[in-house]
């Protein structure tokens, strides 16, 4: 399936303030960004700066107060199987076995019959063949997150939105899954927007890294990672980039404290 470009122009989003429902608090302020077709971009920023909110807008689950979101040249109005979203919580359906969870997208689109063999393929990819007939509460947190990843991937979305999909994994599985996600990304040329808290992960995976700052959420800086793939996690360039980003994040955090006061 072809990848699509993603363009976001001056999008703002506010929510009712929890302490006073009559006023609204700006969560995203004038966000503009664009991803070329097939690009892999990471989004990092402190907790609560609106990363998940932005992904929900792109997925079409919420609509912005103002601004414009486009996939290719189509405006985003509602959710669509062409834009996959892996949520921060795995949110597996507890009443379905792992296999049925993973094939849910095929069932929802009514294409299970033609693509049944892909289910096994994706279960193998995330290493859950043995648990095919287990129910989600038998899975560990990391296994559940892998199942959720497979569930989104099976639709071959043109744009894949990942909200800390590897957060619950141990270091080794995490690195293996990073390579798997990269392999999938290269094989399917999906446009990918990856939210992460892990700077190493952002540098290892992405073409560009966007750093967000909170209250209201905005994109502070965009950094191009000009390293050749496969990247070495301990190379000099890698480590220097890591230091720069840490610095920027620190500043982003401080500026938010200043804003608040």
């Amino acid at each position: 399936m072809e990848a699509s470009s993603l363009r976001i122009r001056e999008v703002s989003k506010s929510f009712p303030a929890p302490d006073d429902p009559l006023t609204r608090r700006l969560t995203l302020s004038n966000i503009s960004l664009s991803l070329a077709a097939g690009e892999l971009v990471s989004l990092i920023g402190p907790s609560g700066c609106g990363k998940s909110t932005l992904l929900r807008l792109i997925a079409g689950l919420d609509s912005p107060d103002s601004g414009e979101l486009l996939v290719g040249s189509e405006p985003i109005t509602s959710p669509n199987a062409e834009r996959g979203l892996v949520f921060q919580d795995p949110n597996l359906f507890p009443w379905l076995t792992v296999r049925r969870n993973i094939q849910a997208g095929l069932v929802a689109r009514g294409v299970l019959r033609e693509k049944r063999d892909e289910v096994d393929q994706f279960m193998r990819l995330v290493g859950l063949e043995v648990f095919a007939n287990a129910y989600p509460h038998h899975l560990s947190g990391g296994m559940a997150q892998r199942a959720a990843l497979a569930r989104a991937l099976i639709n071959h979305p043109k744009v894949l939105l990942l909200d800390e999909p590897l957060g619950a994994l141990d270091a080794f599985t995490r690195m293996r899954m990073q390579d798997e996600v990269l392999r999938l990304w290269q094989a399917h040329r999906t446009t990918m927007l990856l939210v992460t808290h892990d700077i190493d992960e952002a540098i290892y995976m992405s073409d560009r890294i966007m750093i967000m700052s909170p209250r209201p959420g905005k994109i502070e800086q965009t950094i191009s990672v000009g390293l050749d793939r496969p990247r070495q996690r301990t190379s000099e360039d890698f480590l220097r980039l890591r230091g720069d980003i840490l610095e920027l994040l620190h500043l982003a955090g401080e500026s938010s404290v200043e804003n608040k006061n």
Binding site: R56, A59, G60, L61, S78, P79, N80, A81, R83, G84, L85, F87, D89, N91, F93, A104, G105, A108, R109, R151, A152, N155
Partner: peptide, 11 residues
């Protein structure tokens, strides 16, 4: 969130 997941899967 279950409904949201299903909608992003094309339900």
């Amino acid at each position: 969130s279950y409904l949201d997941v299903a909608r992003t899967l094309g339900a």
